[in-house]
Simulated scan of single mutants.
Amino acid sequence: MNWTDRRKRFRSVLAGERCVHPGSVYDAISARIAEDLGFEIGMFAGSVASMTVLGAPDLIVLTLSEFAGQAYRINRAGNLPLMVDADHGYGNALSVKRTVEELETAGVGGMSIEDTELPQPFGAAKPRLIPVAEGVGKMKAALAGRQDPALCIAGRTSAIQISGLEDAIARGKAYEAVGVDALFFVGIKSRAELDAISAATRLPLILGGVSGELTDLDYLSARRVRIALQGHQPFAAAVKAVHDTLKALREGTAPSKLTGIADAELMKRVTREADYTAWTKDFLS
């Protein structure tokens, strides 16, 4: 696997002039579908990982090895540059360094490390942030853990919805000064907020969960946003499809009467049957 080539393609998105929406992926076949459909990059979120691997909500009960293992399965399935949400790095700054090492080995193109206090501390009624100095230490550790200089590290903060715009800008500038490759902001709700952040920083921006007036790609591109997440509907759609299909079968619907089923040609394409047929002929004939 040529991981560096994928990372260079990931970097080309950050260095470009246009904002793109990543394809939200969670396993080998979803990554292949996103690649076949022309998505520039894939996005594997911590929340989706928790649901995919454990069937659990996004409470940071997933382990680093479980997350890295699923990221590797996604990466080995094709050539889609993959960004991952590495949450808080699974511990303190030393854990962050280890997280970067493991995810780089798993082949990711870029990852974000955030400054939310995770997992939820005892007695905490709402999300809290770690001190800026601790966040800076985590970003330094992330950069120190990187072996391939093409790997992208994004400093992520949800400060705007926890402590306000001023703190979000301060944290972005602090992580920028450390040397991260991009800034990832979650919770921006208005153009005024994004305008202020864009004016105060200089790195490529990544936004989580944009909606409303922040969905205009021309506007986002002009504000140096290069990646804008749209959510993780593909996984939710897959859950709905499996639920409805199993329910119909349980209630007596004949398999031939089911709707919404992938046809044979689609199944052959996403499983790369043509490749396996050729390999069978070459190696087993």
Results as ranks from 00 to 15, higher is better:
Ile113Pro: 06
Tyr72Pro: 04
Glu114Pro: 05
Pro119Tyr: 14
Gln70Glu: 03
Leu80Pro: 09
Val100Ser: 10
Val100Tyr: 12
Pro149His: 12
Gly46His: 07
Met51Cys: 11
Leu94Met: 12
Ala150Glu: 11
Leu151Trp: 08
Gln161Asp: 12
Leu118Met: 11
Ala77Phe: 03
Thr116Ala: 03
Leu151His: 04
Met43Ser: 14
Ala170Lys: 09
Gly89Tyr: 02
Gly89Val: 10
Glu166Thr: 02
Ile160Tyr: 11
Glu102Cys: 05
Pro57Thr: 04
Gln161Ile: 08
Leu37Gly: 15
Asn79Gln: 06
Val84Ala: 00
Thr99Gly: 02
Asp167Met: 07
Met83Arg: 03
Leu103Lys: 03
Gly46Val: 02
Glu40Asn: 13
Ile153His: 06
Ile113Asp: 01
Glu166Ser: 14
Met111His: 11
Gly46Glu: 09
Leu103Gly: 02
Val178Gln: 08
Thr52Asn: 03
Asn79Glu: 10
Glu114Ser: 10
Phe39Thr: 14
Val132His: 05
Met51Ser: 06
Gly69Met: 11
Gln161Tyr: 02
Phe39Lys: 15
Ile60Ala: 01
Ala125Thr: 05
Asp167Val: 07
Glu101Gly: 12
Leu165Glu: 11
Met83Gln: 04
Ala182Ser: 13
Gly109Tyr: 15
Glu104Leu: 06
Glu40Pro: 06
Ile169Pro: 00
Gln120Arg: 15
Val136Thr: 00
Leu59Phe: 12
Ala141Arg: 00
Val136Asn: 07
Val100Gln: 10
Asn92Ser: 13
Gly110Ala: 13
Ala49His: 10
Cys152Met: 02
Ser47Phe: 03
Gly42Leu: 00
Glu101Arg: 15
Phe122Thr: 14
Leu118Glu: 12
Ala106Ile: 15
His88Arg: 13
Gly179Phe: 11
Lys140Glu: 10
Thr52Arg: 08
Ser163Lys: 13
Gln70Asp: 09
Asp167Cys: 08
